[in-house]
Every structure is written in C-alpha cells, then in structure tokens.
Amino acid sequence: MEQLWAIAITIIAASTPLLIAAIGELVSERSGVLNLGVEGMMIMGAVAGFGATYLTGSSAVGIFASMLAGAGMAMLFGFLTLTLLANQVATGLAITLLGIGLSALIGENFVGKQIERLPNFHGIDILIIFSFVLVGLVSWFLFRTRYGLMVRAVGDSHTSAHSMGFSVVGLRYACVAFGGACAGLAGGYLSIADTPQWVENMTAGRGWIALALVVFATWLPKRVVLGAYLFGTISILAFVVQTMGLNVPPQLLSCTPYLVTIVALVLISRNKRVLRANTPACLGQAFVADR
C-alpha cells in the first residue's frame, strides 16, 4: 500500500507541472494567441520561484514570484506580438531561448543552494490541489461566463469580435499574461515542490510537452487533464516496469508516454465537428484593427 502510494504520488508530481502549464497555454490559445514560449516562461518561473524562496525563506513568496516571472515573460511576448505585431511563432521561439539563457544567468548564484520543500501532506501539496481547482475555474470561465465567451469569440474571429466592440488586444493581453503566470507556476512547481533545487535548463523540454498536450486535447480543459495525467502515469510506470525486471527494452518504454498520449488524445478527438468547433480559428494570426 505504502509502495503504491509512493508511486501514485510520483505520478501526480510528474503530471502537475504539465497540467498547470498546459491549462494556461490553453487559455492563451483560446484567445487566438499561439505562444511557443512556454518552455522559456516555465524556466523563468523555476528560477524566480527558487530564488525568491531562497532569499525570503517563504515558499508563498516563491510561488508568487514564479507566477510573476512567467507573466512578465508573457507580457514581453504580448508586447512584441500584439502591439508590435511580430510573428507569433518566431517570437515564441525567441522567448524560449531568452528564458533559458536569462534563467541561467539569474540562477548562477542559486546553484547548489538549499531551500525548504513546499509543505505537503503525505506528498500532496497545495499546488497539486490548486491545479485541479484551476482546471475547474478555467473550464467554468471559458464556457459559462460572458468574458469566457468573449475570449472564445476573439480567438475564433477577431474581426467579428472587434466589430462587436470587444477589445481584442486587451483580452489577448490578459489571456497571454494568464498563460505566462501558469507556465511560471509550473516551473516553480519543479524547483520549489518536486525536486527543490535550481539547476540550469531544469525544465528539460516540459514546456514543449505542455504545448503539444493543448493541441492534442483539442483545446478542451478536461482533455488536458487526461493528457497530462496519461503522460505522467506512463512515464512513471515505464520506470516501475524497468525495476521489475520484465526485460522490456527501455528505449521502447521511454517513448511510450509520447505514443500513448498522442494516440489516446487523437482517438478521442477524432470527431471532426467537435474538432472544428473547438479549434480557435484565428490561432496565430496577428490582429490589426481596421477602424
């Protein structure tokens, strides 16, 4: 039992950062903004979260700092793409490169430092619980509130939304900032709660997985949960299988999380009508007000 719980908690801890980062990116993409800088915002969140916790001794400050750092990077992305109308794909990639380099620079003095791990009850910490609350809130916001409808409208047809009097750019800024804060928090989860340490490049590509999850989950929050947990579960079970000596080739095991998650999400999303209804039609397109 204890052993099963240890594995379950490892799975939850591996899935949580993916879930938080993906749900943030989902909101950003729903508003029509494709931010490929998730990895960069995440790593900035990781370094800021660790650094703030180390300097103040408070994980609450650390959590706040990680969100702030992610949102800050996102605002930079927003300024470049929404105000200056730079290409979203290229800018997102630049944000990722910038984040990795800048975090290494900022984090130089934090390498090898110790912080108290985020308090937890049998491995369950506040951020794990919060991740589910977040999914619920996002789902409710997008599909049950007026503002959610506005966000979706902006993502589906920014010209119509604009002619109805919505502030396209304003809403997009808000969604991008929210996505950045979530990505930052996901990074902070890694450096404050999961393995409490700072080391350069510690997100190691998790931002890209989160990005892929949003697309394969057809921009639906519940499917993002499924995708993140499927990925986390299979990555950890692949390790468990190895320790049991079942002689399955480890190379095969290490690609199964990707394969299974993609196949599963593609299968449940094969309904073309649902797919078309949920894909933000203006995803990645710059908006220029014509009047």
């Binding site: 052993q3 594995i7 999961d194 393995t195 320790t243 290490s254």
Partner: peptide
Amino acid sequence: IKIIWVNTWFDPGKEGDAAKVLFSQ
C-alpha cells in the same frame, strides 16, 4: 541492484522521478 534507464544524460525531473520510483521499490 535495480536499474532504471532514463535515456537522457540530463533531465532533473526524470532523474528525480526515477530515484523516487527506485526508493519505492
């Protein structure tokens, strides 16, 4: 000894996960 191949030289998250799994086993 129980062995886990993580198929990477550097991924703190994965290395940490592997350690947790090994301790649980």
